[in-house]
Amino acid sequence: MLAVSAVLGALAVALAWPVPVALSRAAWPTRAPAAALALWQAIALAGGLSMIGCLLAFGSAPAGSLPAAVAALAPHLFTGPLPAGFGVAQVAALTLAAAVALLLMLNLALTAVRAERERRRQHQLIDLLSDPLPGEPRTRVLAHPVPLAYCVPGIRTATVLTDGLIEALEHDELAAVIAHERTHLDQLHHLVRLAFRAWHSAIPWFPIANRAERAVITLTEMLADDGARRAVGTDALRRALERVGDAGESGAYPESSSGANPDAAMLDARLRRLGVDPSVAERRERDIRSVRAAALAASVALVMVPVVALIAILGIVP
C-alpha cells in the first residue's frame, strides 16, 4: 500500500508541474490540437486522481484497503483511541483526500451552475433583442456596431453575430466565422473548457492551472478554426481573423492588469498556423502522425495508472 502511495505521489507531482510545463511549451500541439486536448484532459484527470489516491493509499495502509480502514476507524474516530497502526498522519491523509475530492467536485458543480445561469440570461436577451439570420439555423443577428461573433453552447445553442461584424466582413469570411462557432458547438468544447475553468477556480493560486486553462482554450479555438477551414477554406478564415482580430493590436477593453496580452498571443498563434505553406503542411502532417498516436497512447496510460491503483486501494482486486 505504501508503495502504491509513493508511485501515485510521484505521478501527482510530475503531472502538477514538469509535465504540463513541458506540454505548454511544446510546438506540436498547434499541429495536432485534438490529441493535445486529449492529453491535457488526461493530465488533469490523472493528476487529480493520483493526488487523491496517494493520500487514500497512505491513510489506509495499516488496514490494507480503504473499506477496511474506514471500518476500523469509524467506531473510534471521535471517541479514540485510534486502532493499532493508525496515527494522526493516516487520519489527516484520509481527511485531506476527502476534502480535496469534495473541493474539486463542488467547484465543478458551482462553475457549471454559474455558466448555465449566464447562458440562460444570454438566451433571454438574444430572444428579445436579435433577429434570425435567414438561411442559417440557430444563428442570430444583433443590432450593434461593434464587430463581434460568439456562440452560446449547451442543450439549446445560438450563434450571435452583430451588424458591425456583417458589415466588416466579406461573404466567405462571414461563412468562416459561422463555421468556426458551429464547430465549437458541435464538438462540445464548452464541456472541456468548463472542467478546466473549474479546476483553475478551485486552485487559483496555482500557476499551472491558469496555464492549462489558457492552453485548452487555445486548442479549442484551433479545432474550431480547423472546422472553418474544412467548411470554407483557409484563406477566408485567415482574412476574417485578421479583420476581426486587428492582428497585433493589444486588447484595450478592459485594460489587462499584466503586461502581456494572452488573447493577442493566442490570436497570433492561430494566425501563424494558418500561414504555413501547403506543401510544408503536408510534410508536417506525415511527421505529426506518430506524435499524435503517442499523445493518445500516453493519455490512456496516464489515466489507467491511478484508476488501477484506486481499484487496488478500494480492495476490489485482492
Binding site: 462553475t111 454559474r114 455558466a115 448555465e116 449566464e118 447562458r119 444570454q122 456596431p145 461593434v146 464587430p147 463581434l148 461573433a149 460568439y150 456562440c151 452560446v152 453552447p153 458591425g164 466565422v177 468556426h180 462557432e181 465549437h184 468544447h189 464548452h190 473548457r193 468548463l194 475553468r197 473549474a198 477556480s201 486553462e213 482554450i217 479549442t220 479555438e221 474550431a224 476574417a240 481573423l241 476581426v244 482580430g245 486587428d246 493590436e249 493589444s250 486588447g251 484595450a252 477593453y253 496580452n261 488573447d263 493577442a264 493566442m266 490570436l267
Partner: peptide, 22 residues
C-alpha cells in the same frame, strides 16, 4: 466573469476599435 466557461467568442481579444466604439 466566467465567460470563457459559458460562451466562446470568435476572437477573444477586444480590439482597440471595438473598445472605443463600445
Amino acid at each position: 466573469t466566467d465567460r470563457d466557461a459559458a460562451l466562446a467568442r470568435f476572437v477573444g481579444t477586444a480590439t482597440a476599435g471595438e473598445a472605443a466604439t463600445l
